[in-house]
Design a protein around this nucleic acid. Sequence first.
DNA 1: GGACAACCTCCAGCTAACTCGAAGTCAGGG
DNA 2: CCCTGACTTCGAGTTAGCTGGAGGTTGTCC
Lengths: 154, 154
Amino acid sequence: MSKLPESLSIGQVAQRSGISHTALRFYEDSGLISAERTVGNQRKYPRGVLRRLAFIRTAQRVGLSLEQIRDALDTLPDGRSPTKSDWSRLSNNWRTELDARIEALQRLRDRLTSCIGCGCLSLRSCALHNSDDQMAAYGPGAARLRPSSEGGID
Amino acid sequence: MSKLPESLSIGQVAQRSGISHTALRFYEDSGLISAERTVGNQRKYPRGVLRRLAFIRTAQRVGLSLEQIRDALDTLPDGRSPTKSDWSRLSNNWRTELDARIEALQRLRDRLTSCIGCGCLSLRSCALHNSDDQMAAYGPGAARLRPSSEGGID
DNA sequence: GGACAACCTCCAGCTAACTCGAAGTCAGGG
DNA sequence: CCCTGACTTCGAGTTAGCTGGAGGTTGTCC
């Protein structure tokens, strides 16, 4: 039996989670995780932080922004530490996210396929443009494409 | 018959393409498009720029970065203006891109589905983590997730 | 009690894809 | 000739998700 310490330093958390200590501090500033402090002001993470970080990383892979993830985490119970079913509830929402994202990409691909032969790429006639799901294909990022009121072209 | 002017001002291009004039100048600085100048130093776009812009916007939707798009555009013939088959050749590559992206998302979803019941989210045992396609699900953006050498956890 | 690693805060900088503002120039109509 | 609006350049600011360094403190081992 290896003994399980009931709290972890930032270095230990970084090592175990594979998340850099700078990122951990950034997550703390962003309200995603939190830590007690020692008398000497050093961070003291509860073990539960590892599960929380696992959730965060996975949610990122699904394509959620840190803000969305924070909102999700905020719905976890306040007093007690979260149970399996708490985590299940949260990650269940990801399916919908993913399904929608996949579908949007598939629609885009289908339109592309029907368009590839023609080489038209006309903003007016080509089905690839003027479509509904402008941003749907994107994960989070800095790009802010506005819906762009298209005029005639070509 | 409406007459087609052989060159367009930046305002006209912005209006017809739905791309802001600031973005157009940005694209020029980035080497994606170019323009002649009038004697008074104002931009004079050839009509072909609209097709080029259509290509750029669509490529963005597929998930390519402006840098990738620039590289693609650089393979267009130098002297003559590009033909339909030139454009087809370029956009054909998108299918592969899209297929890969869709597949990655589907794999992620399948793993998620098999995991959702358990609520485990353990970095060590959960199939959701420790997988190959770290970034595959993402479009372009500022996020740079390194592959993160995962240690044991939980 | 000294060395040294690990920790602390704060602030600056990075990338992508832009946007915005200032200050000045150009083009067309009256 | 003047007004107006569309254009010019240049430099700074925005967002997300971090990284890195400076300069100082804490904790642990010998």
